[in-house]
Design a binder for these strands. Structure first.
Lengths: 352, 352
DNA sequence: CTGTTAGCGCCTTCAT
DNA sequence: ATGAAGGCGCTAACAG
């Protein structure tokens, strides 16, 4: 590969002139520019990205960081990423997906700074160590989701109002007359599941419905959403036949619930209402019956997060911002008023 | 940020010793190592990624390259990416998603080498310029999908046998007695659509069924899969009521076909058989009726591509390899034998 | 407008 | 096992 020196030599100019022809940081005469460009073309030269980064102290790359060892993007992450990518391409940033396990990064030969100007952190959990690490390294960070604890006021983030989401989903079902509502929440420790769980409890309390801990279950991180939805709803509907409504974390999880219900001869929405937190607008309407849900606008979350981060990288300023993306309840056909005789139809015992 | 000099100074050793403590490229005594590490910890030092890359002439980053200006990952890309990421993390590579439009990259200030050791190219098309560009820059490349024209023998690639896939799907329907089969293919110019189209025609010819150009339609790149599937199948079923089977490019497209059929009072599979090329094992079984399809194993495609590329980066060798991932026909419930009286039921004319 | 001279932070011979 | 010096390719500060 030709270097800047080669070009300078064959064009008969200095390195810095070549540099400035390419970077356009200071004006170079038309003729010289032509001469340099011709030489560059001839030598098939292009500035070396890493040498440039080293001298510039910036990479124009932002990172997308997933927690956990095995990276496994979900549909929701896909939406986020599409949003992030679109914003990136608008500002000339590249996106680095961080897939390396911590264990690897801590081995001596692999210890190094990160090749990014900043990071977007996905799926924050309580006791998330990623934020503190980056603050220590003085690396710009934007979180998608609520940062845990104190960090909420220390780093910028983009989120839905998940307490409100939990409240709204629950309230919606309460209004339909359901009072035994099973909540199949996201994995424990994720701040999103904490928030939604809180919203769920608040709505119950506001309606004077006692909170039953049995009815709030966190996803098993080792299972797929749909198989978890299937097995846990089957188990719970068996054990507590007075359950008349289920809130699920995702549309895939709802799919599992649909299957369980169908196998058990439970009709949706007549005997069981289902509502999901979801971003998908393609599959949900095609469920049978179409799935009612709260739409999260993942692409927008991603876009806003990227925008915040890129701003932060460019300005090197530390104004902490918080952006809440509003959600939208989409009523389709999976929820109905609670039927009074559900318990008997199912042959189970009612608590009331 | 502390540099290697700072550490060397406070540890009372030379730069090269510090370098070797971290890189472990030559043995350093236990005591000195301890001393250096202590100094590093104290100064919060970590080797600079860019400086290292510059000196090493390698980044340990591979690129994932999408064609087109607006990046929009689909479900299938998601599978690919998960595979790529898993393989990356196994070998200590990071993944850079290439999202920058060509127009941007051609502006003078942005012209530069790519910050990657090699690239995985997605969705190759006829006349794809990306491959030649990279060969010129001497950048390792692996294509997912069949490279166009001559490049097939010049670059490594991972693909399904899409001619066979096209043949198999068609043959399957022919055996069920269908002979007016609509093929809703991927976008024109994609090598995958060319291959499948070829397979489709071959099967027809082998069965002595005349090929009708009207029945082979390429996806409109500006539409979503499902809306394309919906509108085009509605139009075609109207125009040519003797169509008794449809092959779709993806499961999302099949969803559109389902909707069109339902609106038109056409029963699947009784009046219309549907088969899709698909990677999704979550939604397809939940279609009503469950969707029959040819499973593509996207994650494996991604994994193998990453493996090939990383090999190539490490070895700097140019042995061109070709890996075909076998597919699997999954029979569910969306296909049935062609009914003899379909034309009459639909009120249309039959060709026979 | 252009050239000269120092770095950016690390790695790598070649010594010892 | 450790040190010294030079180089990776580019940008930046200072001249003129």
């Amino acid at each position: 590969m030709a270097t800047i020196d080669d070009v300078a030599r064959t064009a008969g100019v200095s390195k810095s002139t070549v540099s400035n022809v390419f970077s356009q940081k200071r004006p170079i005469s038309k003729e010289v520019t032509e001469r340099v460009l011709a030489a560059a073309r001839k030598l098939n030269y292009r500035p070396n990205y890493w040498a440039r980064s080293l001298a510039n102290r910036t990479t124009r790359i932002i990172g997308l960081n997933m927690p956990g060892e095995r990276v496994k993007f979900s549909l929701f992450h896909l939406s986020l990423m599409n949003g992030v990518l679109n914003e990136c391409s608008l500002h000339g940033y590249r996106l680095l997906v961080n897939s390396l396990p911590k264990s690897y990064l801590n081995e001596l030969p692999h210890v190094s700074s990160e090749p990014v100007d900043g990071d977007i952190l996905l799926d924050p959990v309580e006791k998330d160590t990623r934020i503190a690490e980056r603050i220590r390294k003085n690396l710009p960070v934007v979180v998608i989701g609520r940062p845990p604890g104190d960090f909420e006021s220390k780093v910028s983030y983009v989120d839905n109002d998940n307490v409100a989401n939990g409240e709204n989903a629950t309230q919606y079902l309460l209004r339909l007359g359901h009072n035994r509502i099973l909540f199949l929440n996201a994995s424990r420790y994720k701040t999103v599941s904490i928030d939604r769980g809180l919203g769920y409890r608040r709505s119950l309390e506001a309606a004077g419905v006692p909170f039953d801990p049995q009815l709030l279950i966190h996803k098993d991180p080792d299972m797929t959403s749909s198989s978890f939805g299937y097995s846990i709803s089957k188990e719970m509907l068996m054990k507590l036949p007075d359950i008349t409504a289920i809130i699920t974390d995702t549309d895939k999880m709802a799919l599992g619930v649909y299957r369980a219900a169908s196998e058990m001869g439970i009709a949706i929405p007549d005997d069981l209402s289902v509502i999901a937190f979801s971003d998908d607008s393609v599959f949900a309407p095609e469920f049978n019956p179409p799935l009612t849900g709260i739409k999260l606008f993942g692409e927008q979350l991603g876009r806003e997060a990227a925008k915040l981060l890129i701003d932060q990288c460019a300005a090197k300023q530390h104004s902490v911002k918080r952006i809440l993306i509003s959600t939208e309840m989409v009523e389709r056909g999976s929820c109905a008023a609670a039927s009074q005789n559900k318990g008997k139809i199912q042959g189970g015992m009612k608590n009331e």
